[in-house]
Design a protein around this nucleic acid. Structure first.
Lengths: 332, 332
DNA sequence: GTGAAAGCGCTAACAA
DNA sequence: TTGTTAGCGCTTTCAC
């Protein structure tokens, strides 16, 4: 590997000058400047980021900490984050914690020894004390989509307005004329979505009786089972809001298996907007989480901390929007 | 951040000794040894991996290069890879190339300046010349699941026996008594799966007429459309092998939409074993790619190169296996 | 404008 | 067994 010194020797200057040329600092004559560039080109010089990292105490590396990349929701966000990071000259270290605090702490330890410039943490993947400790020792950290119990004034956060998401689902169903709407919710983590849904219904004078509330765990199966329970009711709902897309897909399956038409006999709306939802039949109506915007805001916030060395915690919120496809229709 | 010198001063030795204690090299008296450990504990010392990387020319970082982490197949493998890497003390840099050679080259450049210890490249994400160039300059590189046009004797490869995968699908359907079996295939990339299927059928004297071959692009839609075409045939098949799970899911949807029972009227077998397949109804029978084994083999091969500095290219193959669920049944 | 020199934190000979 | 010394490749201050 050719080094700065190689380039310097080749041009007949000292490495400090070459460094100045590369970083654009100091002042260099136009002449040597271009000769240095020529030499860099000729020798195929590549700055050594490890050495630079040591000297500058900056590594141009961010860590993305999440529960598991095998979850498509995180994977789609990770893709966006990586793209933005790369455009800004950063690379991304992938850290799955599998919801295991020990693994999380292990990662944090390794990351601190590595001088990562910043941490992007997806909700639920690290313990709050661990995040606070990292933040307190000056580690730039942005928490994305925190769960309820992760709210903490000392942490910078990019969140999603889940209450609004619930409202959007409700309003859509109300506009379609549904008055018997049920919900399948993962509690307590999806409480806000549910609450937003309930509130919007209430505003229009529509109640959400307890027998129309089923609890799931965000899997298709639980959506399927919740729907079976709802369909077994003496007066069945005409629409279901599932607080995530997988449960919504399970709901659709259950309805079809029970000989109902979707959306003819039962409307279903989900939340997330996973890719799959668009390719399934009927294509799923859902409240979309704008992953691209989420990623962009999070990275930009993080880079602001990194660049400015200030650290007043900031809290941002991105708004979801409704994506109408074909799993919802007018009430019967 | 406390450094080696801090620890050394605290104990009253020199940093070289502390380094020896930590790396386990050289010989240190049991006495100072324990005092050093105590000091490390007390000061909360964390070795600086950037400095260590510079000194040792080794960074304990691997890069995972793939098309897009948003594809669940890659994401599930990435999860396994990250797990194994972490257990071996390595961290993982995530590089999405989006099938764009320019981005791929950008990544490679950044990675080389970073002194990554090794590259794990998923098939289709980098150009062959770029990979060869990296390998030639001594960069340990393992190619996972290469596509047809990536076969190259100079590259180390962990592949999947797709021919065998096709055979497994065929044998399963033959055992169930199916004699009119069709295939939905992405050509040419899935040629081997198709060929294995065809061969196994032929061995049992069952033909695969051209009208029973439909072409898709690995999406659910294309599976759906292919199936519609097959069902419109005067003599329709009793079973379909789709060369990936998404197309198989589309096939099931199409059959159900056309009033057929699956597996009663039509059996469907896929290939991949994506998580979703297990949660859909009917749960999909499929030929599973053993992602865990794939990840393990790939990392181990890569680490062998890194540790031993030898570089004879090796080619490994992992065998898929059949997962029988409920989308296949005896022929009518 | 350019160079000399010190240093980032750690490792790896070689001496003592 | 421990210390001394010289790097790893780059940045940065301060003279010249």
């Amino acid at each position: 590997m050719t080094t700065l010194d190689d380039v310097a020797r080749h041009v007949g200057v000292t490495s400090a000058t070459v460094s100045n040329v590369i970083t654009g600092k100091g002042s260099v004559s136009e002449n040597t400047r271009s000769r240095v560039f020529a030499a860099i080109e000729e020798l195929g010089y590549q700055p050594n980021l490890v050495a630079r990292g040591l000297a500058r105490k900056k590594t141009f590396t961010l860590a993305l900490v999440l529960l598991t990349i095998a979850n498509p929701f995180y994977a789609e966000i990770a893709e966006e984050i990586e793209r933005v990071a790369r455009q800004r000259g950063y690379q991304l270290l992938l850290c799955n914690t599998h919801k295991d605090t020990t693994i999380g702490r292990e990662h944090l330890k390794a990351l601190s020894g590595r001088w990562v410039d910043g941490l992007l943490v997806m909700g639920g993947s690290l313990s709050v004390p661990d995040m606070l400790a990292a933040a307190r020792r000056g580690q730039p950290l942005v928490l994305c989509v925190p769960s309820e119990n992760e709210q903490n004034a000392a942490l910078s956060v990019v969140d999603i307005d889940f209450h609004h998401a619930g409202e959007l689902a409700a309003r859509h169903l109300l506009e379609l004329g549904h008055h018997r709407t049920a919900v399948i919710v993962e509690a307590p983590s999806h409480a806000l979505r549910w609450e937003g849904f309930r509130t919007a219904l209430a505003t229009s004078g529509v109640a959400l009786p307890t027998e129309y509330v089923q609890y799931g765990d965000s899997t298709m199966q639980s959506g399927y089972q919740g729907t079976e329970a709802l369909l077994a009711l003496p007066i069945r709902p005409t629409a279901i809001f599932a607080t995530n897309d997988l449960m919504a897909l399970g709901a659709v399956e259950a309805a079809l298996d029970h000989g109902l038409r979707v959306p003819g006999d039962l409307s279903v709306v989900g939340l997330d907007d996973i890719m799959l939802g668009a390719h399934v039949r009927p294509p799923l109506t859902t409240v979309a989480i704008p992953k691209q915007e989420l990623a962009k805001q999070a990275i930009e916030l993080l880079l602001r901390y990194i660049d400015s060395a200030e650290s007043e915690p900031v809290s941002l919120t991105v708004r979801p929007h409704l994506v109408i496809r074909h799993s919802t229709a007018g009430a019967i």
